[in-house]
Amino acid sequence: MAMSNKASERGIISQRAHFWFQRLHEGDAVAHLVTLIVASTVLVVTGLLVYELWIDSALSRQKFGWKFFFTSTWDPVFESFGAWPFIFGTLVTSALGLLLAVPVGLGAAIFLAEMAPPKVSSALAFVIDLLAAVPSVIYGLLGIFILVPWLRTSAEPFLNTHFGFLPLFQGPAYGVGFLAGGVILAIMILPYIISVSREVLLAVPPEQREAALAVGSTHWEATWEVVLPYARTGIFGSIFLALARALGETMAVTMVIGNTPQVSSSLFAPGYTIAAAIANEFTEATGNVHLAALMELGLVLFVVTFILNGLGRLLILATAQQGTARE
């Protein structure tokens, strides 16, 4: 009796399972719902990220308030934390990276979009995309063993003797420091600037170029005075995206910046960045306040890159839909 009961129960269950499976198989509504739920995990993860960073940094936010951003003591023993040297280092290295990478990146994008034949252009763009696929830690490896010795023995002494009147290029040449961080960031963000700018330039309608050429401008004039203004906003967008990358870049910078929390007017001096501080100190953080302070650094990084990425994407979208040249 019990046996047959169980069997019939199992029958019902398998029938139900079969029914449900059929609904899944043919039911668009179910498929719609399942994929919707999975797709929404992106939002859930983002939300969770914000929640975690906010909760875990509470201790530090309550203790230091806004002072956290403007003071320079970073003392785990007395649990007194100020993030200014990290913020300073992040800003200086990123600015330097952009300064070096934007002209070169833009130049390469112009070549690829305006001059090279389509086949060559896409082949070269692929090679440049490969540059973006090289992991950060390998850039760091090359940074430690090639860039830093070169800066110490050649580049920094050279800059010091020829431009030493500027405070930027004074002081002893350590090799590691803001300059090394900036140069490595420039190399790393270069492929992003090139590939996004190239796409933005390719989206400029050919009529724009043809009109400029038809009234007698040279190839360069058509590019500089017509195509670039048309694509201006999108190019700014690509720079924003590159800046966001630079700010959050961790390993390569950690390996060459010297990891010394200080504010210095010299680019030769060793420094520290937000991401490097998290990478170096997180596993060694002793007290809860220290951990919370590092979490707050993470929160800062998240918020800033979030804003930059949001703006950058909007600018690129806007350019893709219509040009931004003045009437």
Partner: peptide, 25 residues
């Protein structure tokens, strides 16, 4: 649009911050 935007933003989030999330949970 919202999901795409969120995905792109997650894509731009520094990987070390994602590490903090994994650490936290």
């Amino acid at each position: 649009f919202l999901l795409r935007y969120a995905t792109d933003l997650l894509n731009g989030t520094p990987s070390i911050v994602i590490g903090l999330l994994a650490y936290g949970i």
